[in-house]
């Protein structure tokens, strides 16, 4: 039995005047229903670009997309990368949905919440506006908006940020999608609201038995909800594995660096946080070899200057735990600080 979404060798690049921007490179992963995959990485690492490609939201004329992303629907598998645009459109909002980072601007300011939700529902269901509003009210209740039957008639500007994100979630789920992509859904929200939204996403996942791809740069968020994690850097997956493995036994210096840079409650006071030195490379003309090597503090430990000449492949280090690094297991243990 194959997973609901299988992405294979997905590569997205944008031709620009300065050259080809390799936004995401040779991405492969899969997510099944009921499972949450977190995609972690800093800005520009290709997280959003990959998910927009799966949703078919890139302009096909100005974007080069290769590889495949297969949705295993009940009616049979569809590759959303090569399928005709119109067919992919009909999957959006029904088989796969997406919520975005900034709920303040993601809702149309001129239409009522009920109109916007019912528009999404009526696209795939037969029913008049009244039925749409009824369904919208049910969804608003489900995502925990109090007084839903009254608020359904209100406009986005009458909602707070957290409430708007709940509306976005309600809209994304109104047609029972099998895949939900959440692109930094909590980044624009208050910390207290963040955990509420994450809890809501978890509850909804159970309710609808969805596959969830959670894009984030916040490892705290990942720890809370993810089953498996993709760590991305400069357009590539550098580490892939179950969440616990990533946290307790990271196999890539970048992941180790990210984890070291999180402030911890049990850390000694007065100790500085460890930052990863340098900047990510430009995605135009990526350097030969490992794209992380210039920021990697362990690169000189690898023999024959291998990091500068050969790009490491995504190799299995342990059971279902992959990493793109030349370091040996012994060197990695040392890099982790003996763990």
């Amino acid at each position: 039995m194959s997973a609901f979404l299988e992405v294979k060798n997905l590569t997205v690049s944008f031709p620009t005047e300065d050259g080809l921007v390799q936004a995401s490179n040779d991405i492969s992963f899969s997510v099944d229903r009921g499972e949450t995959l977190a995609v972690v990485g800093e800005s520009g690492s290709g997280k959003s670009v990959t998910s927009l490609a799966i949703m078919g939201l890139h302009n096909r004329k100005s974007t080069n997309i290769n590889g495949s992303a297969i949705l295993n629907l009940e009616s049979g598998p569809i590759d959303v990368i090569s399928a005709p645009e119109d067919q992919v459109r009909r999957l959006r909002g029904k088989a796969m949905s997406m919520i975005f980072q900034d709920p303040m601007s993601a809702l149309h300011p001129y239409y009522s919440i009920g109109d916007q939700l019912s528009e999404a529902w009526r696209l795939y269901n037969k029913g008049d506006k009244k039925a749409g509003h009824k369904r919208a009210t049910e969804m608003l209740e489900l995502v925990g908006i109090p007084d839903a039957s009254k608020r359904v008639k209100e406009f986005p500007h009458q909602f707070s940020g957290g409430m708007r994100q709940r509306v976005m979630i309600a809209m994304a789920l109104i047609n029972n999608p099998s895949l939900l992509i959440a692109d930094e859904p909590t980044t624009a929200l208050d910390v207290t609201v963040q955990s509420q939204i994450l809890q809501l996403l978890k509850d909804m996942q159970k309710e609808f038995n969805m596959a969830v791809i959670l894009i984030t740069h916040d490892l705290g968020v990942v720890a809370e909800v993810a089953d498996r994690v993709n760590v991305m850097y400069a357009g590539k997956i550098v580490e892939q594995g179950v969440a616990d493995g990533i946290y307790y036994k990271p196999d890539h210096p970048y992941t180790i660096g990210l984890l070291n840079s999180i402030p911890r409650v049990d850390q000694l006071e007065g100790k500085r946080l460890i930052a990863i030195p340098g900047q990510p490379p430009s995605l135009i003309n990526l350097p030969q070899g490992c794209s992380f090597r210039k920021r990697c503090t362990f690169a000189d430990q690898v023999a024959d200057n291998l990091c500068a000449t050969l790009a490491p492949s995504l190799d299995m280090k342990e059971n279902a735990h992959f990493s793109r690094c030349h370091l040996t297991e012994k060197q990695l243990v040392a890099a982790r600080g003996g763990k």
């Binding site: 909002g93 949905s97 809702l107 149309h108 999404a120 696209l123 976005m168 809209m171």
Partner: peptide, 23 residues
């Protein structure tokens, strides 16, 4: 952003232009 939302909903380009963009 809300035009991207409309697209993510699965609306056709014609409806997006007429109902969402032009409004």
């Amino acid at each position: 952003d809300y035009i991207r939302t409309a697209r993510a909903k699965g609306l056709s380009e014609k409806v997006i232009l007429r109902k969402h963009t032009l409004r």
